[in-house]
Amino acid sequence: MIAFLSKRLGIGLVTLLVASAVVFFVLEILPGDPALLMLGMNATPEALASMREQMGLNDPVLVRYFSWIGGMLVGDFGRSFTYSSPVIDLIAERVVVSLPLAIISLILSTAIAIPVGIFAAARRGRMGDTVSMGVAQVGVAIPNFWFALLLVYVFAVWLRLLPSGGFPGWGAGVWPGLKALILPAIALALPQAAILARVTRSAMLEVLGEDYIRTARAKGMPRRYVLWRHALRNAMIPVLTIMGLQFAFLLAGTIIIENVFYLPGLGRLVFQAITQRDLIVVEGVIMLLVASVVVVNLVVDILYAVVDPRLRVSA
């Protein structure tokens, strides 16, 4: 187990290092002058020169790369060009929105998808299967921003039960904060749940066709017990893989939903930073996301080993 973990950690660190170089040098060749963007079309050349100096854009590329890497090692992600506050603070402000949102959506989608998937697999080819997979098909097909707008019109404009968007901050209390995340979490969870339900169903079907399931049934073990105890556990590997991918997506790939609900999440921070050419922020957030994907993968790997003891040995 120790060897397994340290190997995984090593791979993770190399991934981070490679990612940092790719991110930095790709952004370096992006056209656009952050100083000009900040000062606009009426700026005098002297003012632009002063701004570039202030933003630290006059140092050579390699110097900036290594000072950035060196800073990150000690937890200093640099200072935003545009917001002029430390990047780490900007990220922290957004993570407290994006992380709870991602967790709530993941819980929601899992809570819906796994029972539905098992149910459909158990009733393969029957009415329940057709209906639930039909609904899942619709769930996959509906664009989540459209579904989000529908939720806003029903729950905010019409019923006035929930806010139409925005985030009051956790300082306003846990309930107002959660209230602001309910609709976006549902909008994000639905398509994810639909995909996850389909994956669960097919994984379950595969397992249910195995000999040992027939043996278990033949020796008289109750159907429900076979399904939950023997089949599900073995069907979990592909399900966990998809959940890991979904969580990484939910952390930062939610820019559209963040825009519909004008939530100050990580996705919008990156988007704004790219359009403003606030490269240091873009780099910082991307590194954080790479790190979180590495961590999520690590967790998924550990969970594999938990559900399937064979993996503990072979890895």
């Binding site: 707008l149 905010a156 139409s164 004008y262």
Partner: peptide
């Protein structure tokens, strides 16, 4: 001052009284 970057979000924000 509430920042609402998307016009699709601006309209429900107004209609809901937010």
């Amino acid at each position: 001052f509430r920042i609402i970057p998307d016009s699709a979000a601006a309209i429900p924000a107004l209609l809901s009284g937010d």
